[in-house]
Design a protein around this nucleic acid. Sequence first.
DNA 1: GGTTCGTATCGATATCAGTCGATACGACAA
DNA 2: TTGTCGTATCGACTGATATCGATACGAACC
Lengths: 112, 112
Amino acid sequence: MSRVIATIDCPVAAPKNLMPASVAEPLADLLKVLADPVRLRLLRLVADAPDTTACSCHLPGPLGISQPTLSHHLKKLVDAGLLVREQRGRWAHYRLGSQSLLPLREYLDSCC
Amino acid sequence: MSRVIATIDCPVAAPKNLMPASVAEPLADLLKVLADPVRLRLLRLVADAPDTTACSCHLPGPLGISQPTLSHHLKKLVDAGLLVREQRGRWAHYRLGSQSLLPLREYLDSCC
DNA sequence: GGTTCGTATCGATATCAGTCGATACGACAA
DNA sequence: TTGTCGTATCGACTGATATCGATACGAACC
């Protein structure tokens, strides 16, 4: 006959409510856009601009990056809704997107 | 004599105060750790646990990842200070690290 | 001591992101 | 229309990272 073995099990209960992947993945995508020093500086720069509008003609120099690289980063920020692009004559101007960081704020408040 | 050319210049002033790279890079590193769906779910899972403590023995199954992959992600979270590891007998338990998200909260409040 | 089991590390692979030079596009100026 | 200039795209390279199987380590049990 089989003996009942008193195995010492992990005393912590298994998790019940797991955050769904359908929620975690879009949030991770947003964080991936934020997780770059150049883009963090770009966002802050637009936020600090007089009317929260910045022209990209001034940016490559201080940031130490080339023009294609700047264009690449700005596109990422616009695609994520973090910046809004507006064409003024020959120049492209950028302002902050609204509400785009709401999912991140909600996660931080609910989680940590 | 030279003629003054009325070139139409960009009407937006050049940025003055640029966020220093020494600030942006650590924050980007923290965001890189957060920018993964598995790690977002792990953090939320620990936060939702009864005493905010979770045992990793229950995690690979629901998350759909192998044990080495789980170990990899937990190490990243611990290294970033987002989780604190505590050995209890044979099991490793995890709780939330405190203050580790402060730089991110400050950035969000000051910027966006 | 030997076994079991939770966890970490190693090695390999595959995918992805940042960067830049070269080039194309497009709007305004002359 | 021709040129200039701001911007986007392309192609290529490089480095970082997520993943897993195999294996090693370490502590508790028998």
